[in-house]
Design a protein around this nucleic acid. Structure first.
Lengths: 342, 342
DNA sequence: TCTAATCATGTCAGCGCTGACAATGAAAAA
DNA sequence: TTTTTCATTGTCAGCGCTGACATGATTAGA
C-alpha cells in the first residue's frame, strides 16, 4: 500500500526513452504523436524502448508546450442520473478513441448558476472545448461567457439559437408526432403534459411538437393541460407532485399524460395511483428517453427512445477528430417505443 | 460562436497579474495558493489584479512544476447508474472543495479488464490518487499494478484485504441484520438471494451477513436459495432473468428475496410478476442502496440506505485534505428503509 | 554529373508555474 | 547600540514536452 500523497515512483520521460533508443527526444515525440517522416527502423526501436520503460506522455508537460489540454469539459446537471450516465458513456468512449480526457463539473440546476460554476470551476480546468447538454446548452449567459473566453463548444439538443454553434441533436419532433398519433388512434382525446423546467428549452420544443402534432390531427392544442415540475431533491418526486397538483386542479381528468422524461413519467404514475386511477385504463402515460427503468416499472412505460450516448459520442468527435468537424450539425434518429402504459 | 479548435484568447498569466500589482510572480503564486506570510496590503493589491485580469491558474503549468496533477481518478463500472451518479456527486463536491478535478475512466465490467483500462487509460492521466469503488476495489491485479507504480488509492467499501489500503466503508452488516430480523418478524422463513457477480466482494459480504444473521435468529443459512446474476446489457434485466431461473428451479418457492441492489430487486419484482406471484403477499423483496427509483416502483421497495455520495466525499477528502489523512479508515452508518415490498 | 527537392533527424527556446534559496528590512532581544 | 530573529518578498532553474527551424542524407530530375 502506498501512502497518501503524490505518487512516489518517477515515471519515465521522453529523454529516458530517447537515451535507450539512441535518438533525440524529439524523434520519440514524433513516434508518440504518430507523426509521419520517421523511418520504420527507428520507429520500431523507439516503440520497443517505450514498452521497456512503460513510458506514458506527461499530459501536463504536453499541454503546457502545445497549449492544448486534451481535456473536454462538461456540466453534469442533476436532472436524470440515467441521462447523465448515458452522456458520460458516449463521451468517455469518444474521448478514449481520440486521446482526450473528460472533466466533469457538477451542476445542481436548482441552486447553482451555470455561469458561476463555469467561472469558478470548469474555466480553471483549461479545457480545449466544452460539451453542453440541456438545459445548460441554452443558457445564453453561459454561451456569452464562452464566446468571450474564446472557448469552443458543441451543444447537444439545443432548443434555441440553433445557429449559434455546432450542435448534435435527435429528431425529437418526429417521435413526438408518432406518439401523438399513437395516443390519438387509441382514442385518447384529453391530454396533459407534465413539463420540464421553463428554462429547459429542449423540453419546450417537445411541448410545442406535441401541441402541433395534436393540431394536425384535428385535436385542440389549447385544451392541453400543463403542469411544470418544480425541481427539488428528486425529479421523479417533482413529477409526482406536479401530477397530483394537475389532476386535482383540472376540471375533467385527462386520459393521457405526456411527461418530460421517464423519471417524471414514473413520478406521474405514482401520483395517478395515489388518486386511485389505473394505468393505462383511466390514464395513459408516456415518457421520454427510454431509460432502462422504463421497462422495469409496472406497467412498462411507453416512451421515446433517443440515442443519448451516441449524441455525446458525436459531440466529442466533432471537437476531437481533426477530420470530423467540417461535418457541421448532426441529427440522429429517434423512435417511439410502445409499452404497457398506453 | 467560436471555431472548433484550441481556445483562441490567451488567458492571463501570473506574470500579467504580477506586473499590474507591482510584485514578483512568485508573490502572486503565494496569494493564489493561500500561503502564509504575505502582507495584507500586498494580498489585496494582488487580489484586485487577479479580478481585473480574470486570472486562473494554468493547471498544466502548475502540475509540471509541482509534479502533482491535482487530478483524482476513478473507474466508473456499469453496475448501476444511480450508484455511479451518487459516487460522482460526492466525489465532485469534495474535489471542488479541495481544488482537485475528477478524471473518470469508463469500465465495462462485462468486457473490459480493469488492469488494461488502467494501463491504457487512467495511468496516462497521471492522477495524484485513485478512488476505487466495488468491484474494482477488490481486484488484486489492479491493486498490485497501483502499488508497483506507487500510485496511492482509497478504496470504497472493499470486501477483502481490508488492511491493504486506506478505506471508506458503510456498516452494511448491521443494516443487513436489521433486514433479516424485519423479515423474520414478519413470519418469512424461506429465503433467497439474488446475488451480484462473484468477483464483487462487497456483494459477497452482504450474502454472508445475511446468512449469519439468519443463523443467529435460529434460521437455516444452508437453506437459502441463491442465484447469481449474469452481467449483460442491463443489470435489472440480469436480475429478472436470475430470478426467473431461481424460481423455476427451486423446489418450494421462497417467501422473501434479498437482492444485491435496488436495480436487481426491481428486475426480480418483474420476474416474480411474470410468474403470477404477488408482492409482498407471496414473496417479499428487499434491495440495497436506497436508490431514488426504490420509492417509485410499485409497491415501493424496501431497501437498505447507505450514504453513497458521502462515501465518495470522504474518500476524496482522505487524499485531498492534508490535515485529513491521519484519520485512517472510516465507517459510515447505514439504515433499513421499510417500504411496501416486505 | 550536378542541382533541387524530399526525407529523417536534431537543436533549442520557452510554455506558466513552483521549490529551493537568497535578500531585504523591521522588530525583538541582548 | 548591536545583534538576532523573522516576516516578507525576490531570483532563478527547471518540470517534460513541442513548435519552429536547422542540418545532413538520400533521391529524383536535368
Amino acid at each position: 500500500m502506498n501512502p497518501i500523497g503524490p505518487a512516489v515512483k518517477k515515471p519515465a520521460t521522453l529523454d529516458d526513452v530517447a537515451a535507450i533508443a539512441g535518438v533525440s527526444a524529439k524523434t520519440v515525440s514524433r513516434v508518440v504523436n504518430r507523426n509521419a517522416n520517421v523511418s520504420a527502423a527507428t520507429r520500431e526501436r523507439i516503440e520497443a524502448a517505450i514498452r521497456e520503460t512503460g513510458y506514458r506522455v506527461n499530459q501536463a508537460a504536453r499541454s503546457l508546450a502545445a497549449s492544448r489540454s486534451f481535456l473536454i469539459g462538461a456540466f453534469m446537471p442533476h436532472l436524470s442520473s440515467f441521462y447523465f450516465a448515458e452522456i458520460f458513456r458516449g463521451a468517455a468512449k469518444a474521448c478514449r478513441q481520440y486521446g482526450y480526457h473528460l472533466v466533469l463539473e457538477e451542476f445542481d440546476h436548482g441552486s447553482d448558476s451555470v455561469v458561476d460554476r463555469y467561472e469558478q470551476g470548469l474555466r480553471g480546468a483549461h479545457c480545449d472545448a466544452l460539451i453542453l447538454t440541456p438545459p445548460v446548452c441554452d443558457d445564453e449567459k453561459l454561451l456569452d461567457a464562452l464566446d468571450r473566453d474564446g472557448l469552443p463548444y458543441v451543444r447537444i439538443a439545443p432548443g434555441k439559437q440553433l445557429g449559434r454553434s455546432v450542435a448534435v441533436g435527435a429528431d425529437e419532433r418526429r417521435a413526438v408526432e408518432q406518439l401523438v398519433r399513437h395516443l390519438w388512434d387509441a382514442g385518447r382525446r384529453r391530454f396533459a403534459i407534465i413539463a420540464g423546467p421553463a428554462d429547459h428549452a429542449a423540453a419546450m420544443v417537445r411541448e410545442r411538437a406535441f401541441c402541433d402534432a395534436l393540431g394536425a390531427l384535428g385535436g385542440d392544442p389549447a385544451g392541453v393541460a400543463l403542469a411544470r415540475i418544480e425541481l427539488n431533491e428528486s425529479i421523479a418526486e417533482a413529477g409526482r407532485i406536479a401530477t397530483l397538483d394537475l389532476l386535482r386542479d383540472v376540471g375533467q381528468l385527462p386520459d393521457a399524460i405526456f411527461a418530460f422524461n421517464d423519471e417524471v413519467a414514473i413520478g406521474a404514475m405514482a401520483g395517478i395511483r395515489e388518486l386511485g386511477r389505473s394505468i393505462p385504463e383511466d390514464i395513459a402515460v408516456a415518457g421520454f428517453d427510454d431509460s432502462y427503468i422504463a421497462q422495469l416499472v409496472w406497467p412498462p412505460l411507453t416512451t421515446i427512445h433517443q440515442p443519448i450516448a451516441d449524441l455525446a459520442f458525436q459531440a466529442v468527435r466533432l471537437v476531437a477528430d481533426p477530420e470530423g468537424f467540417s461535418t457541421g450539425n448532426i441529427l440522429l434518429p429517434t423512435s417511439l417505443v410502445v409499452r404497457g402504459t398506453t
